[in-house]
């Protein structure tokens, strides 16, 4: 083009002749960029510091016994946190058993059926639960399951507390994914004479599959790191315990107890436990990434 009218209100100005404010603009740009990079670096630095410290302190504590043996009494060196790892997995299993069906069903209700006041109430309640401090959930489950129903601290109560933490995260994630499933797909299925419920279960939900996986993994990762509600429900246990109506060990509780102890061996094991917990959650998060990548590639 002949007319190089790139700068507004400065017609046909020669491009090699800089605008008067050019120097300051360039300086401002450099300043802002530097500030942003420093902020980003600070955030990453904190993360790396924590990670690095946990790895340096935690890695030496890991050995076969750490993963296979039960904790030993104070003073005796050795043993491991196997009951805690098992307990965490057990309680996450219980939490998934209750939390996944309820969370997914709530999401289906909100996205596919819910309208009007009831749906608004459900949606509001979900937000409310998501905002509850986890210790409050712990107190509630303690008053209900520990004190009134079972009569003692138990793993089932821990699982239920974790389920309550999982449900809002799961519901929101799945609801969002169900909402982005295009309506023409629902219509295509309905027009084939497939009933609504089957359309949702066999067409809409599989299409949103990756989102459901993401929600499950995300909420499980969040619940797996919770300590406060477990202190009030599962309590912790130094022995192998497979009865869910008995006090059950969990990694976060083990870390909490060991980290507060005066024994160097226990303190080392607390770092080891932290490392295992971070790895567990990290692996879950990587699974999420993988699911998201699959979703974006798939559609």
């Amino acid at each position: 083009m002949a007319t190089l009218n790139l700068v507004r209100r400065e017609p046909a100005r020669a491009l090699h002749q800089p605008a008067p404010s050019w120097k300051w603009r360039k300086l401002g740009n450099a300043l802002a960029t530097t500030l942003m990079m420093l902020s980003a670096a600070a955030a990453v630095a904190v993360l790396l510091l924590i990670l690095g410290h946990v790895i340096i302190q935690g890695l030496p504590a890991l050995n076969i016994a750490f993963f296979t043996e039960r904790p030993l009494p104070p003073g005796e060196v050795g043993g491991g946190v196997a009951p805690a790892i098992l307990g965490t997995l057990e309680m996450l299993g219980v939490a998934s058993l209750f939390g996944i069906p309820i969370g997914v069903a709530t999401a289906i209700y909100l996205s596919e059926y819910g309208r009007g006041n009831l749906a608004r109430l459900v949606s509001f309640t979900i937000d409310l639960i998501a905002g509850l401090p986890s210790i409050v959930i712990g107190v509630f489950v303690w008053a209900w399951l520990v004190r009134n129903v079972v009569g003692q601290y138990n793993g089932l109560a821990g699982g239920v507390a974790l389920a309550i933490i999982m449900i809002p995260i799961l519901t929101r994630t799945v609801e969002e994914t169900l909402r982005i499933v295009p309506d023409p797909l629902r219509e295509a299925s309905l027009a084939l004479g497939i009933p609504r419920w089957k359309t949702i279960l066999r067409v809409v939900l599989p299409t949103a599959q990756a989102g459901v996986i993401t929600g499950v993994v995300l909420s499980a990762a969040r619940a797996g790191g919770e300590t406060a509600p477990l202190l009030l429900t599962a309590l912790g246990n130094q022995f192998f315990q497979f009865d869910l109506l008995q006090p059950t060990a969990a990694l976060p509780i083990q870390i909490y107890n060991y980290a507060r102890s005066p024994y160097p061996d226990w303190q080392a094991k607390a770092w080891g436990g932290a490392f295992v917990l971070i790895t567990l959650i990290g692996v879950l998060s990587l699974l999420t990434r993988w699911a998201i990548a699959r979703r974006t590639r798939g559609s």
Binding site: L185, E187, A188, A191, L192, G193, I194, V203, P206
Partner: peptide
């Protein structure tokens, strides 16, 4: 649901099930 079995429909945009 029975009606839609007897009276089928093809839509504006092709909408095969992606999964």
């Amino acid at each position: 649901v029975r009606v839609r079995r007897v009276v089928g429909m093809v839509f504006q945009k092709p909408n095969p099930f992606p999964m």
